[in-house]
Design a protein around this nucleic acid. Sequence first.
DNA 1: TTGTAAGCGTTATCAC
DNA 2: GTGATAACGCTTACAA
Lengths: 330, 330
Amino acid sequence: MTVTIKDIAKVAGVSYSTVSKALNNSPLVKEATKRKILKVAEEMGYEPNLAAKQLVRKRTDVIGLMWPTIERIVLATLVTNISKAFENTSYSMILSVDSQETAMETFKKFQVDGMIIFGESNEVSITQDPIPFVVYGVSGKNETSYPIIDANHEASMQKAVKHLYELGHRNITYIGQFDTKDALQLEKVEGYEKAMKQFGLEKYKQIIDSKGLNWFDGYTAVEKVLQNEGQQPTAIIGGSYDISGGIMRALTEKGISIPNDISLVSYDNIPQMATTEVPMTCIGVPVDVLAEEIVHAIIERIESEERVELVKKLSPTLTARESSGPPRIQ
Amino acid sequence: MTVTIKDIAKVAGVSYSTVSKALNNSPLVKEATKRKILKVAEEMGYEPNLAAKQLVRKRTDVIGLMWPTIERIVLATLVTNISKAFENTSYSMILSVDSQETAMETFKKFQVDGMIIFGESNEVSITQDPIPFVVYGVSGKNETSYPIIDANHEASMQKAVKHLYELGHRNITYIGQFDTKDALQLEKVEGYEKAMKQFGLEKYKQIIDSKGLNWFDGYTAVEKVLQNEGQQPTAIIGGSYDISGGIMRALTEKGISIPNDISLVSYDNIPQMATTEVPMTCIGVPVDVLAEEIVHAIIERIESEERVELVKKLSPTLTARESSGPPRIQ
DNA sequence: TTGTAAGCGTTATCAC
DNA sequence: GTGATAACGCTTACAA
């Protein structure tokens, strides 16, 4: 038999409402009794019944995370981090890998207090729903009716170029996905272009379309770079963790030393960047920070009345590692 | 305000206990009233309250899936499929990506009816817990106290070799991870060895250690194969989806035609195999079948008393596609 | 500071 | 067939 507050009450010799108060750490109960009750509860192996609690409190302290496309590793890392971030809060998290509709159903059923939604294109259907949520994705230029957490991709590229510029680089090439509808990728490219302009490096500008976001896309793109006539880059910015991994591999195989011959800076600020063949300099919002922000955002959304600041753009960080250094003196 | 059965009762002009019965499709209520009540419920947008239901029924119809390592893609596909498989049942699924302990807590909190656990090495701590579960992983040779769903890896390799043998191949090389503690990988290698022996191909046996399970590991392994002296293989078996992808790429790049010069068969039977550069012949338990079996197993575990058949080994299927064909006539 | 009791939305057991 | 009514385990006024 599972033990309830009534059982505890009997053993502790108090009424069960007192037990309830003690368990909820209410100031209305004397310290001594509180301690005693807590001790008894502990001994009896009491586990609160969420369903009962929920029935009266009308809330679950649970957040649902909607993640329809589980097959991208950077997001996997983010999910893990979000999950961790919740451990320091009074909320816990459940995850659904179903379609938005199915996920919504599940979450409604469990009566989650809020939702985190991954994805760029968000169905309007969601908006009219009463349960609070935040979206992690590209905010774009248009207005939204729902809150979006986004990274400042422009600022990222700006920092990357600045870093390389200050090291002395001028020939800085960007390798990333270009011919796509993915707003995130496009923002990266734009950011690169702006930054190059800002530093007066327009004539050195070179964008290589990796065609995709995977390891191999970076690997093959290097070929294109090397085959290009004219000036060779002294530095490359890779558009994603996977792409940069491929770039690094390809350079190494060709006997091109990183960073002595070519410096490499990668988008995506995740811990895995520290353990690449050559530890990778990277830019982006560190994934743990990102996770914290997302968690914070949804909790605030739930707990506070005000609906300010729909779009939140997070500032990126540049983490310098061995893959970038000054260019070889010509 | 959310609508409850009492609200429905008022509108429909019946008692709320009748509403409850009607909603649960009880035979104790007249067809006519049932229809009326259902209609009213529909119109009022009634959504049952899981917490209340759970409080009295002592069950949730929810299964928890524990998935601590979200960063392997084959498992991602499996999770998606399991999630889908649950749609045809009365259960729904929630997912935790936390450690076993944290996940257990969450699941206890929600009072899930059962759990599916991914992983090979399973802590004993689990075993003494009252909530039913099944494990998906390698069953190995020793006894277990808990039910395991596993694929028959030996049979897979046997089918792969048989397929190639019957096409006329003799020089069949296996590329996979070898120097590892991962029981699953070792079983594959063992299976290959047994199968080669069975078909009298021992002298053609060749195992290439890919060192890892990723795309690039397959890609580089091809180099080793080609550099080997002596007979070149006319067929290769790749140890995983990713490995085989790398193998395929490497062969294509070297101008080696698949399947004309070399046939390729891959482990892992997932839909993605149909969309590789050359559609891939593969072996393994089809992921949808696997999902169905897992779902079936946990439900049975929950609903039936008998505790038979702890280990369940699933039979693999060979799906023939374009990447394998008869060897070129010498 | 503690206890009593109402109520959260259901299901299930009776009686009518 | 249908309707009262007692649970389920908990929180929370309100009373003592």
